[in-house]
């Protein structure tokens, strides 16, 4: 039951992009095509889950016992950036097809605040390891959902005659705003 609440809340009610404003750079940067959007979503799912597990272990077995919580930001960001590098190297060796699909998105992951944000939230909400993993997976699904929907809207927008001043980023932001408005309809279901 607890997991269901976490999943519904993360995907629909408190969508990481549309309600919590995390991961906006890739949200606007890689949402021009549905296929790339889905690729990015896959990479986020992978890195976010691994990062949540690793940072959870570091917090509970190193930072908290030694009273070093104030080093949290610095350790997390270092761990996440080295993790991304490692994933890239391992993926290249172990699964070239997967690397082909996700490879170009991996370097973008370090500065994706959704990854660091979720890692911090897992600790702040005092989740157990299992709940933390569910939380991370659900958030990356929420991220992918928002990304793919926006990419779909943008593909349609190309065919529409947009007023001169609103071309480019402004109309995309307004579209994202309307999408966020639609997601607000889910508020209160959990």
């Amino acid at each position: 039951m607890e997991y269901i609440v976490i999943v519904l809340s993360a995907i629909l009610v408190n969508n990481i992009v549309l309600a919590q404003f995390l991961g906006l750079c890739p949200f606007f940067g890689v949402s021009s095509r549905i296929s790339t959007a889905a690729g990015m979503g896959g990479a986020v799912l992978f890195v976010m889950t691994v990062a949540a597990i690793v940072t959870y272990l570091i917090s509970h077995y190193i930072l908290i016992p030694f009273d070093l919580i104030y080093l949290r930001t610095i350790t997390y960001i270092l761990v996440i950036s080295s993790l991304v590098q490692m994933v890239e190297i391992i993926l290249k060796k172990v699964s070239p097809p997967l690397y082909q699909a996700l490879g170009i998105f991996l370097p973008l992951m370090t500065t994706n605040c959704a990854i660091l944000g979720v890692a911090i939230l897992v600790i702040q909400n005092e989740y157990t390891l299992m709940s933390g993993v569910v939380f991370a997976v659900a958030h990356s699904i929420g991220f992918t959902l928002a990304l793919v929907i926006l990419a779909g809207i943008r593909e349609q927008l190309e065919l529409v005659n947009v007023p001169e001043g609103m071309k480019g980023n402004p109309i995309i932001l307004v579209a994202a705003g309307l999408l966020a408005l639609a997601f607000m309809g889910f508020a209160g279901i959990v």
Partner: peptide, 20 residues
Amino acid sequence: VFILAPGAFIALGYLIALAN
């Protein structure tokens, strides 16, 4: 709506149009 999430996107959209 402007205090809530959707308003943030929309307000920024129009400000960017203005800056352009």
